[in-house]
Simulated scan of single mutants.
Amino acid sequence: MNIIIIEDELPSARLLKRKIEKMGYAVQTILHAVADAKEWFATHAHPDLILLDIQLSDGLSFEIFENQKIKSSLIFTTAYDEFVLKAFKLNSIDYLLKPIIDEELVFAFDKFLQHEQSKSVIDLDNIKALLTTKNQGYKERFTIKIGQSIKIIETSSITCFYSENKGTYCRTSDQHDYLLDFTMEQLENLLDPQQFFRINRSHIIHINHIKDIAIHSNSRLRIYLHHDRSDDMIVSREKVTDFKNWLDQ
């Protein structure tokens, strides 16, 4: 059985590969971005099974299969909530909720082997619409425990979110940093995309706190925020076009 993994987080991809190999299956290759996957599929036969994350560094994994028929069974590895995941079941697509538990991975493979999914009925456009449609449930505040107290932080006062030393933090307009119990990927799903944009792997910024934008090297952009001491707010090259479109909304 030919298997490939599409995952932009290298440690997660390696861990999933080890889990699959421990089950006695070989992983053909690991791809890390939409662009890489499109290039790979242009010159390789579709595998029997693809395990892929929804949100990759350069876009949604649905974009990989635009303008072509899917010839593989799919298992999404995702951090999306249970409500949205109902769409997968309705479209005969399986999913594994991160962090992936060994028993659930085994169960997913057993189900794939016993009842191979009908690839012709998969409607990725429908699922993509469900996942990207603006809803009214975006997070408006975070509660953070500080000692024996609980602090309420409104998202409007947050200049940015950032990851550092395996932790995820928010920085407020009064230049305080608070550790959160969310990953950057989870935050992308919780925050209003009209207000927040992930400019690179480690930073999500608030549009109302942008002070200035400057041209940076290699076709990138440097962001300066109000009330912020950081000097590494760089829009990655693959995100520049989307960032400019976001600003023009």
Rank of each mutant, 00 (worst) to 15 (best):
I64M: 02
E39N: 11
Q117D: 11
S12E: 04
K71F: 05
D81W: 05
D58K: 09
V84M: 12
T29A: 06
I122P: 01
F109Q: 03
L51A: 03
G137W: 08
A33I: 02
I30T: 01
A108H: 13
R141H: 12
Q55G: 05
I50C: 07
L105S: 10
G24V: 11
I20W: 06
V84G: 05
S73W: 00
S12R: 00
F62N: 06
S92V: 00
A33C: 13
T143C: 02
H115A: 06
T77K: 03
A33M: 10
D94E: 15
R141F: 14
F41K: 04
T143M: 07
T29W: 02
K19M: 08
I50K: 04
D94F: 08
S120L: 04
D123Y: 02
K111Q: 07
D81P: 02
H44V: 09
L113E: 15
L16H: 02
D53L: 10
Q136H: 07
V121F: 01
I144T: 00
K128E: 10
L131H: 09
G24D: 11
A26C: 08
K119H: 09
F107G: 03
A42N: 11
G24P: 11
F112M: 14
I122W: 04
Q117W: 05
A79H: 08
D58A: 07
K145V: 13
I101K: 08
D125R: 09
H32C: 12
K134Q: 06
H44K: 08
S73E: 08
N91L: 10
G147F: 08
K145Q: 15
I122G: 03
A35I: 15
L49C: 09
A37P: 02
L56E: 02
D36W: 01
L113Q: 15
E103V: 09
G59L: 12
H46M: 15
S12F: 00
I93Y: 04
S12A: 11
L74F: 10
A35P: 11
A87P: 01
V34W: 06
P47K: 09
T77F: 05
N67Y: 12
S92N: 06
E116T: 12
L130F: 10
A13G: 06
S118Y: 08
I101D: 03
F76D: 10
N126L: 15
H44D: 10
I70M: 05
L15M: 08
L16E: 00
A79M: 11
E116S: 15
M23S: 14
T77C: 14
I122T: 07
K145N: 13
Q68V: 00
Q117K: 12
Q117S: 14
N135T: 15
E140T: 15
N135F: 09
K17S: 14
